[in-house]
Design a protein around this nucleic acid. Structure first.
Length: 565
DNA sequence: GCCGTTTTCGGCCCGACTGTTTTCAGTCG
């Protein structure tokens, strides 16, 4: 909002690095900005504290970058970015969102006059890309696919971004009973517009938000004010208390759900809109959503269940009060520490987990094949387990797990005798994303069927708004999990949220799940909420989520799982 | 631009894969 976010700082640094890379004259300076961005991203300190300390002690942020960041946070622009951007057409930066394109390729495209996503799509279609030096028919094809993906993603945000904007608005709408609406309220994994509803008038909203929402203006014919915060579209709906229910309902569903409700209302002789529920000229009092559906003679669908995928099943799913909640989560079973690519020590991660109310912390540092992530050699694995045993001896609630790479042939990155020194094993794919689908499926089926694999980590490898998952027969993999009692991860990192809740919904009766944050910093443990939101959309109760068990119960679960194989 | 130091300048992560090459450049995790 008014204060600059850490995300904005990181994004300015990254964009600077990208542009300097495209310009190609100062590769190490580009690397310096990228390093500063990563360092800032991995940090847990809040922005005001960082600014107050002048970024003292932040790795890779030296005097120069610190001074530029402070000027930026003070309301100015980020100097280095402005300089670089003045030398490059505005659309070129967007090309970095295309998978498979790096600075050199982007430079070639720019030199050929291709300087926007739309322009690249056209050039990939009409053969101009394939004809460029260094490109060919095959790369033109993959570029076209990746460009379509990037264009589809460009007007959506991660749930975490939408949530932050909504919370910022709510903090400023005090006295108007503000509530989350839209995609954020329903916990959709990506968000188009950050929506909030209030009890009040347009003037009430304007008075509170004029300073923080860019271009705040009424939306034609609707009880809404719209604008942007940090580039994210926002809408604030307002209504008098008597019709707040209709407003909440209209702003709280997917488009399809809203339209189906309006159609059903119309068929019964009502007119339903964000301005209220009418029968003829009479406005019916509907302070709550329940009041609206009661008048219409319809059941009220919980917000979690308002997507088209729920249409056929929602009435068979548990009511919201019975769904798994953040408070039910007892421990994470996939976290990272300084032993691999995490930022905090094991005791620091345990302390952070306890501060969040978790009963224990399950570790999950990378295995040796993940060399880019400082994965543990066999020797370091032994030292790692030794430290965890020592911490347990000192009374810390910690479990020894590892995130073990699934190699190209489906085998695991450690021999069985080493896996047996751990309390549990998370198996994940971090390489060979482009095997043909049959081999990829076989690879994951084999890993999911391994007698020592407890949990299959981020099963599809997708990154929301960045890349689709690897091509495979997901149902065959989940079938193998079901057959072997292998737990399936719902990765709670807001950039992943993998397994997709739609697949969890389809498989909810046959599988056990783990909501894991995959946290690389203490603050990452807070992502639990996003994973829980996905589990709730899939209708899961705590009985279906293995990390609602206590530490002892979970160990017993692992023993039972292994005995049953 | 940052860092570390044989203190004021030289080096900056790397192995594997892919597509376009014909021996390698570019990208990714």
């Amino acid at each position: 909002m008014a204060e600059v976010t850490r995300k904005a700082l990181v994004s300015a640094l990254k964009s600077t690095a990208d542009l300097l890379d495209v310009l190609g004259e100062e590769p190490f300076r580009a690397q310096a900005y990228r390093g500063a961005a990563r360092s800032l991203e991995a940090l847990d300190t809040d922005v005001p504290t960082l600014l107050a300390s002048g970024f003292e002690g932040v790795p890779k942020v030296g005097k120069g970058i610190a001074a530029d960041l402070i000027a930026y946070a003070g309301g100015g622009s980020f100097g280095p970015l402005e300089d670089a951007a003045s030398q490059v057409p505005a659309g070129v930066l967007g090309l970095f969102r295309v998978r498979g394109l790096g600075p050199k390729k982007i430079r070639s495209l720019w030199d050929a006059g291709i300087d926007s996503l739309e322009g690249l799509r056209e050039a990939a279609r009409d053969g101009r890309v394939a004809a460029l030096k260094g490109f060919g028919a095959k790369s033109a094809g993959t570029i076209l696919e990746a460009v379509e993906f990037a264009l589809g993603a460009q007007d959506r945000q991660h749930l975490s971004t939408g949530q932050a904007v909504v919370e910022g608005l709510i903090a400023r709408l005090g006295g108007l009973d503000p509530r989350p609406a839209g995609d954020v309220r329903r916990g959709l994994e990506t968000v188009r517009t950050a929506r909030v509803t209030v009890t009040g008038t347009a003037d009430d909203v304007r008075a509170r938000l004029e300073q923080v929402v860019e271009g705040l203006a009424p939306l034609e014919g609707k009880p809404l004010l719209a604008g942007r915060v940090d580039g994210v579209p926002v809408e604030v709906g307002y209504a008098p208390a008597e019709v707040r229910g209709a407003l909440d309902l209209m702003l709280g569903g997917s488009t399809a759900y809203r339209e189906s409700l309006r159609a059903e209302a119309k068929a019964k002789g009502f007119d339903l809109s964000g301005r209220g529920l009418r029968r003829g000229d009479t406005l019916l009092p509907t302070p709550t959503e329940e009041d609206v559906t009661r008048e219409l003679g319809l059941p009220l669908r919980p917000a979690e269940y308002r997507e088209p995928e729920h249409d056929a099943v929602w009435e068979t799913l548990p009511p919201p009060g019975e769904l798994v909640a953040v408070a039910d989560i007892q421990g994470m079973l996939h976290t990272h520490s300084v032993w691999s690519d995490g930022a905090a020590t094991l005791p620091e991660m345990v302390a952070a987990a306890q501060a969040l109310g978790h009963a224990y912390l399950g570790t999950g540092d990378h295995s040796r094949a993940a060399s880019y992530a400082n994965g543990l050699s066999l020797e370091r694995l032994r030292a790692y387990v030794q430290e965890i045993r020592a911490l347990q001896g000192a009374g810390l609630p910690i479990l020894a797990g590892a995130e073990v790479d699934i190699l190209a042939d489906g085998s695991l990155d450690y021999p069985d005798e080493d896996l047996l020194t751990l309390d549990y094993v998370v198996a994940s794919v971090h390489s060979h994303f482009t095997l043909d689908p049959a081999r990829q499926t076989e690879r994951l089926v084999q890993a999911a069927s391994h007698p020592l694999v407890t949990i299959l980590g981020h099963p599809t490898g997708k990154l929301l708004l960045r890349r689709p998952g690897y091509a495979l027969d997901l149902d065959a993999v989940l079938e193998a999990c079901a057959a072997n009692g292998t737990v399936v991860e719902i990765n709670a990192n807001p950039y992943r949220l993998d397994l997709d809740w739609r697949d969890v919904l389809r498989w909810r009766e046959r599988l056990t799940f783990a909501v894991n944050t995959d946290a690389h910093v203490p603050g990452g443990l807070g992502d639990t909420r996003y994973g829980v939101a996905m589990a709730r959309k899939a209708g899961l109760t705590s009985a279906q989520v293995v990390n609602t068990l206590s530490q002892a119960e979970f160990l017993a679960f692992v023993a039972g799982q292994r005995a049953g194989r």
